[in-house]
């Protein structure tokens, strides 16, 4: 008997991703889609995609989708969830979108305990616009707008989104995960599933920060990028569950 043990999830369309070779956005898309499939919620899910590299995510998720203005996805998701409270609503946002221009929207969606799920992809750089400094760019990290490395007196220090949002009472579930190897990919998927379950149970706002690579703008091979993530990002952005309601523990 032949058994398919790994195939493309139904919650992804068949459209080919436009991402650069080795970019881990594709892994994160797949994990979200797998969770949607496994929870059996595809018919009931609405996604909101950002401005940035994942701007075309509406073509990839096989569910009803919204494209939001830069940083505004949590507000758009709020509008959807408040009209259709029984739908599962998620946003998929990068670090420029969520942690820079969209800080007000994400903080207040979390503070309101908005019953939405946010997948926050942190790769420490602006991808689509050409490798500029992100709010999450590491100290000393070279980008096209910090050519000598991010220097704190001039460019400040990174925003730690999971730590910041977990101080808010309305935030029910906050976790930081990584996708740099298969073991962490499995852990990431578990966290994403919990973030959807928290919404399903009506417990409040849920966010999973996923550390991701950008081989193109980091100037590394895809393989080197995974290593760079593990050695440089994880020490600065510790993995773990920052907040978790007792109901889903």
């Amino acid at each position: 008997m032949a058994k398919v043990i790994f195939k493309r999830p139904e919650a992804l369309t068949d459209k080919q991703f436009h991402y650069c070779p080795g970019c881990t956005h594709g892994i994160i898309h797949r994990l979200v889609a797998e969770v949607i499939d496994e929870m059996g919620i595809r018919d009931n899910t609405v996604g909101v995609c950002p401005v940035g590299c994942s701007v075309f995510a509406y073509d990839y998720f096989n569910v009803d989708m919204f494209q939001a203005a830069h940083g505004r996805a949590p507000a758009v998701a709020t509008g959807i969830k408040r009209t259709l409270p029984d739908r599962m609503v998620f946003t998929y946002q990068g670090d420029g979108d969520l942690a820079s221009i969209g800080t007000a929207e994400i903080v207040h969606a979390a503070a309101r305990g908005e019953k939405i799920t946010t997948i926050f992809v942190n790769n420490a750089v602006y991808g689509m616009t050409g490798g500029q400094m992100a709010p999450t760019t590491l100290p000393g990290q070279k980008t096209t707008t910090t050519p000598k490395g991010r220097e704190k007196d001039a460019a400040g220090l990174p925003v730690k989104v999971s730590e910041m949002l977990s101080t808010l009472d309305g935030a029910a579930y906050i976790a930081r995960v990584s996708v740099h190897d298969p073991k962490h990919i499995l852990q990431a998927k578990k966290a994403i599933r919990k973030a959807f379950e928290v919404q399903q149970a009506g417990l409040g706002f849920a966010l999973v920060e996923v550390l991701s690579t950008c081989p193109t703008n980091w100037g590394l091979s895809p393989k080197e990028a995974l290593k760079w993530l593990a050695e440089n990002m994880i020490p600065y952005y510790p993995l773990g569950v920052y907040k978790e309601p007792a109901e889903v523990k």
Partner: peptide
């Protein structure tokens, strides 16, 4: 939290 958010909430609700 702001007019910027208000109009984007409108976008979400209208699109729904």
């Amino acid at each position: 939290e702001s007019e910027t958010s208000s109009i984007n909430m409108v976008y979400g609700a209208a699109g729904a």
